[in-house]
Design a protein around this nucleic acid. Sequence first.
DNA 1: GGCCTACTGTTCATATATGAATGACCCGCC
DNA 2: GGCGGGTCATTCATATATGAACAGTAGGCC
Lengths: 143, 143
Amino acid sequence: MTQEELYPSETSRVTAVLLQLARIIERRLEEGLEKVDLSVPKYSAIKHLALAGEPLAFSDLASRMVCVRSNITQLMGRLEADGLVQRVEDPKDRRCVRAALTPLGKERHAAGAERVRQVQAEMAETLCGLDYEALEKALAALK
Amino acid sequence: MTQEELYPSETSRVTAVLLQLARIIERRLEEGLEKVDLSVPKYSAIKHLALAGEPLAFSDLASRMVCVRSNITQLMGRLEADGLVQRVEDPKDRRCVRAALTPLGKERHAAGAERVRQVQAEMAETLCGLDYEALEKALAALK
DNA sequence: GGCCTACTGTTCATATATGAATGACCCGCC
DNA sequence: GGCGGGTCATTCATATATGAACAGTAGGCC
């Protein structure tokens, strides 16, 4: 998405505000994670691996991250280059490649999680002014 | 950004809902514009050109689209290949390249604008349930 | 046992985004 | 009149995303 105001229409300035708000939140998260040398996609991947507590098949990871498999192939290449993740063969299914967190990967995940917490804490005061129920209702209606 | 739930923290489920909401809105817009062979960035660019009513320097367009100049160089290449935009030299400043809408580009912009209107109309009922003032306040606070 | 279908990860082409480096150019100041 | 600093678009490397095409493998069914 582009970052500017796309929709000047009277009835849907809400749309514009929502998009801008999301963009700013993403930016904050990016900035926070940048401090521990993580991008949002990288953090997301190692977060899923940490939560799962075991190596995950790329396909599985793609489902959890709601993206396409070829995306994971690339991302894993970068994470492996960073030393955060290691490819592991699956003896039971030789089509499968699993992603395993390295010790460094686990550390980095913890560091990233801490940063995310900080960013959220910084925004909490502002965002708690919003009507969570209404937002969730809108989300459900559009989904 | 990745598409899944990144932030399970209690206090900031709001964050997650906002990001998901924005993602869905973006998706709707993409789908609408796809029907007239436009992506969101392409539509954004020709929208700015149409609004300006005159050819714009790439640098100017980059400012308006809140992105980097090299991005515009690429985007303009694609838009030129689509026949929607034409590069125009600026006799007064020979560093400058201006982007001019072709007649096809103007048509396409109108078609895209109509699609955006439709998408917004479809979402209007749902989104009008949100507190616009509160959202804007939050936006201002975070910006 | 062999076939067909379905699934795996990879590769490729493409679109979008950033930022650094480059060469061309403008302008104010001396 | 030229020089230096700032601005212009482009190019390159990189990161992220998609989807089509591919080869290898699993597994059910005859």
